[in-house]
């Protein structure tokens, strides 16, 4: 499954990039995130409760960042395990482009899911994934804009 989107955030690029690396901000923005720990500048560990259709499960995941070309672009790869509910793994390419006082964030994510969540049909999963990423970026945009103003 592939997800792509473009979001305009009312904050300069360095503020956006800093926020994307701030575990507290991420924890507040990721829907259902219970814990988020930064083990190193490029390694994160998270516990997230997800509900996809009739399946609700707690996923434990690890995310690794590649910040070689930051803040223009960076990539991340990760894997989450949800026990009986299944698992997910994937990666995303993110670019941050300055546009005046604002920043345009675009991302392309590729996610593979397995187990019960995969069997419920891609219709359901794609819709849920879009909804979750939408929620994430709405919250993220709000928090970052506030930070930028204050």
């Amino acid at each position: 499954m592939e997800l792509t989107d473009e979001i305009r955030i009312s904050a300069p690029r360095d503020v956006v990039y800093r926020a994307l690396n701030d575990p507290e901000v991420l924890k507040d923005c990721i829907p259902g995130c219970e814990e988020l720990t930064q083990n190193s500048p490029t390694e994160l560990e998270a516990k997230v409760v997800l509900k996809i259709g009739p399946v609700k499960a707690r996923f434990s995941g690890e995310v690794t960042l590649d910040t070689t070309n930051a803040p223009d672009r960076f990539s991340l790869t990760g894997e989450g395990k949800g026990g009986a509910a299944g698992f997910a793994k994937g990666g995303a390419e993110v670019t941050l482009t300055e546009d005046g006082d604002e920043t345009v964030l675009t991302y392309t994510a590729k996610v593979d899911v397995g187990g019960k969540i995969a069997q419920l049909g891609s219709r359901l999963i794609a819709g849920t994934a879009k909804k979750l990423s939408g929620k994430f970026f709405t919250s993220f945009g709000e928090i970052v804009s506030e930070q930028s103003v204050s």
Binding site: D112, V113, G114, G115, A118, Q119, L120, G121, S122
Partner: peptide, 9 residues
């Protein structure tokens, strides 16, 4: 290709 049953319901 991951061996997921896509028609489980």
């Amino acid at each position: 290709e991951m061996g997921n049953v896509k028609t489980g319901t």
